[in-house]
Design a binder for these strands. Structure first.
Lengths: 338, 338
DNA sequence: TTGAAAGCGCTAACAA
DNA sequence: TTGTTAGCGCTTTCAA
């Protein structure tokens, strides 16, 4: 059967506590020779501590949840943008000696259930809208640290990490305005008065304001999917005949729009400029290559984990939200209007 | 603090075992009224069983590992093809009342460590080469069920699920041959005598054999990445001037090749036809849209989980490997040679 | 520097 | 149909 602490203790002729201390690196409490002897036996016998037993006996489980939306009984909704984040989060946790529980959330109650059943030390919320986050965390238990990625929620239970969406959209709109565009469509999911898309919309408008221009209502609502973008692209020039450019809140949407435009005989960028947000790998593979706003995704994930582990281990107060820089990547999908 | 079994038992005026039986659905052992009363209290108090405690006391943890390669200290290597699989596996496990531990594997020893520390009931290996799988599972403990995705390993410790790679490549080569191509390059990672790429190579050659043609050595080695494909595409027509078509073992590679060809002034499909494997979403977004071999990815994942849970719960013997159908998706990147 | 006792929350195997 | 006993493997607390 399994090699236990007791086995090691017996073989070393010491108590379980001594072995426990050695295994957990509390070396101050054990003599050097004992440490070495125990370590040798541990290696020989291939002893691996039982995480369940440790989690049960100690306050901490060293387990972190990664909670992702999963529309009712459905598969996880991991967008291309979020894939990289998942990988980075796992890596950072592993480096810190934590394990990752990946869990799809179909109903709010599942958050509390996930948190409690495995006594998670904390959890990262990835891919939820701000409105949902408040609802989800409302029922959460007090002890666990929560961190939401891409959140602007003022919820004191969660810390947030996000890119500078406001500035990103500002840069995007500025770029199009500088090229000479005036009739620019804003395409993105419908939004409330808080959240990523709201920020981008505000930044977008600010660019017009700083240029002394007024932006006439040219808001188009679309899901953040290729299919939705394609459909939008197909009818764009008939619904907005005078538009010369589109800013989409996500690359995948922008790429769909480009396809829809191409299908209806419009050429990018000579007829219409298209600008995205995210800088997915994919965006450099399509034709024309997409001009977009790039986020530092690995950094976003690394900081998320740092903050989370910080509040868990240091019992620091949840830190203020952190905002990461973005930058414009000029490629081939934008040009001066004709 | 936490609501425990004992709390519920006290409040209901019964023993812990009775509550335990109700919670675990062993209703045959409890009277209907008791069941109802206990269930009411459980709901009222928001009782959630402790998975660690259960795992410690019972044989099973209801935790499954998803083990993914993570080149030394690096982030997880989740290819576009594997992302969908991760999501589906989580979903299937959740439906079955299991949880998923996502873990990057940098060194063989980490497999056993992951398995043991959380007393995993089983694990899915995703993204490993067959050669690695044997090495990884060698040290694994006996009890846990292992299942490798896309594996042809004869290893008795693991069951495998994979697409019909042989037939996929056969269909691909047949398609190109029927279009009239004779000088076809096979582009893929270097391979040994077992595994996915080996199968595809065998299928590819078989198509020539059945057409009574001999395939002259036109094997090009490249990593399964866009960058590697692009580089390959750039030098393809100078290294193989008479080639009229390329079969790549992965869409992402094929897309890179198309880009490299375009950069050096060759047009797809009029100068060179390109055919991929996987049918990523992405492959329909690029220009020209990629002709490819489609796999049923959700099904692959669902079957993987079914098999794994089958051997875990039913203690059935590891089943024979399962092979899933593939089909040719004809799009715009292939045409008759000039 | 080391050890003993108690218990984390649960379930298996019996007993009643 | 229900309860009792005895742990699962570890850490905490306190004593030596």
């Amino acid at each position: 059967m399994r090699v236990t602490l007791k086995d090691i203790a017996d073989e070393a002729g010491v108590s379980m506590m001594t072995v426990s201390n050695v295994v957990n690196g509390k070396r101050a409490r054990v003599s050097p020779e004992t440490i070495e002897r125990i370590q040798r036996i541990v290696a020989e016998r291939g002893y691996v501590p039982s995480a369940s037993a440790r989690s049960l006996a100690a306050k901490s489980s060293r387990l972190i949840g990664l909670l992702v939306p999963a529309a009712d009984e459905d598969s996880l909704m991991i967008s291309p943008h979020n894939v990289a984040i998942v990988g980075q989060i796992e890596r950072e946790l592993r480096k810190g000696g934590y394990h990752l529980l990946l869990r799809g959330i179909a109903a709010p109650a599942e958050v509390a259930e996930a948190l409690q059943s495995w006594s998670l030390d904390g959890a990262v919320l990835l891919g939820f809208l701000d409105e949902e986050i408040d609802r989800l965390t409302a029922r959460a238990v007090g002890k666990v640290s929560l961190l939401a990625i891409d959140s602007y929620s003022a919820n004191p239970l969660t810390t947030g990490v996000r890119s500078d969406d406001y500035t990103g959209a500002l840069l995007a709109a500025r770029h199009l305005l500088e090229l000479g565009h005036r009739e620019i469509v804003f395409a993105g999911p419908s939004f409330s008065d808080v959240g990523v898309v709201h920020e981008r919309f505000a930044g977008f408008q600010a660019a017009f304001a700083e240029a002394g221009l007024s932006w006439r209502e040219r808001l188009v609502s679309a899901n953040t999917t290729h299919a939705s973008g394609r459909e939008l692209g197909r009818r764009l020039m008939s619904s907005h005949p005078s538009a010369t450019a589109v800013f989409a809140t996500a690359d995948i949407l922008a790429i769909g729009i480009m396809e829809g435009l191409a299908e209806t005989g419009f050429s990018v960028p000579s007829d219409v400029s298209v600008l995205g947000f995210d800088d997915l790998d994919l965006s450099a593979y399509v034709t024309p290559k997409l001009t977009t706003i790039a986020q530092d995704i690995p950094r976003k994930a690394a900081i998320a984990v740092q903050l989370l582990l910080g509040t868990i281990e240091g019992k620091e107060h949840p830190v203020d939200p952190i905002t990461l820089e973005v930058r414009l990547i000029e490629r081939a999908s934008t040009a001066a209007p004709r």
